[in-house]
């Protein structure tokens, strides 16, 4: 179980995350929704230990993640938004490095890496430098690195962006299969359709604040909208989409309203 309580983070004068709390249970896919700059990535970065919260509490599988970060991280896998990988390493070397950082027994590393490379269809490119990988290959490699130590929590930050339909399907299926064994997935995105189809529960955040939490049906009925997209627009202030689009066109064509 993940329990996040009163999480706060400020950058200068900007409150990136403002008093956010939520709880995720085993077997759940939890969607973190919000427009660009809402605070999704900052929240995730605090959970995975890249940023220190100014205030609040994070508990991962019963471990205080702020007091015992290494223990908490040993049960956590993370796929970042961008494919930031050491491009001079090969795919195999990257996974070996991740294994070492997770203290996987030396005698197991070779076989585990080989099996995983085969499973994600990177066997033939395993000894090529990551610099030569396509976006899809890098994403599959990141995913493999995130699950190689068999974590109980997987956090994916915009994992579908820029990927073709095939890779997206693989990731979707993997997430579904992953949570069947009482594990947890946090899925961070701004693509509403994917989140709605995949996630058991959602949380919408905007300007660092939690706006609403629940299943997509609960959110839709709570807001009184006819779809998640409408509810999202209503919650995040983008209500009059038509008028906004018209304003943009008017501005570039220098038209009077």
């Amino acid at each position: 179980m993940i329990r996040v309580t009163n999480l706060q983070k400020q950058f200068g004068k900007l409150k990136a995350v403002d008093d956010i709390s939520f709880q995720i249970n085993e077997g759940e896919i939890f969607g973190l929704l919000g427009p660009n700059g809402a605070g999704k990535t900052t929240t995730v970065k605090m959970i995975v230990g890249m940023l220190k919260p100014d205030d609040g509490h994070i508990e991962i599988n019963g471990i205080d993640a702020l007091a015992h970060p290494l223990q908490a991280k040993s049960d956590l896998g993370y796929v970042p938004e961008s494919s930031a990988l050491y491009e001079n390493l090969t795919g195999r070397e990257h996974l070996e490095m991740v294994c070492n950082l997770h203290h996987i027994a030396s005698e197991r590393i070779d076989s585990q890496v080989a099996r995983l490379l085969e499973a994600i269809e990177l066997k033939d490119s395993a000894d090529k430098r990551i610099a030569g990988y396509s976006k899809g290959m890098k994403q599959r490699l990141l995913l493999a690195g995130a699950i190689i130590h068999n974590p109980r929590l997987l956090i994916l930050d915009e994992p579908m962006s820029g990927l073709d339909a095939n890779v997206q399907s693989v990731i979707r299926q993997l997430i579904k299969d992953f949570v069947r064994e009482k594990r947890i997935v946090i899925f961070c995105s701004h693509i509403l359709e994917v989140v709605e189809r995949l996630c058991d529960r959602l949380m919408i955040i905007h300007q660092g604040k939690k706006l609403v939490e629940g299943t997509s049906e609960q959110i839709i009925s709570h807001i009184g909208a006819d779809s998640l997209s409408a509810a999202f627009n209503q919650l995040t202030g983008a209500t009059d989409i038509d008028s906004q689009a018209r304003d943009i066109l008017d501005a570039i064509e220098n038209r009077e309203r």
């Binding site: 995975v48 230990g49 890249m50 970060p69 290494l70 223990q71 908490a72 991280k73 040993s74 956590l76 993370y78 970042p80 961008s82 930031a84 990988l85 050491y86 491009e87 001079n88 490095m97 991740v98 070492n100 950082l101 997770h102 203290h103 690195g145």
Partner: peptide
């Protein structure tokens, strides 16, 4: 140049 890839050291349980 690849400093952005250092995230891996922060998210893993490495000492």
């Amino acid at each position: 140049e690849s400093y952005r890839s250092a995230w891996v050291f922060y998210t893993s349980p490495a000492d």
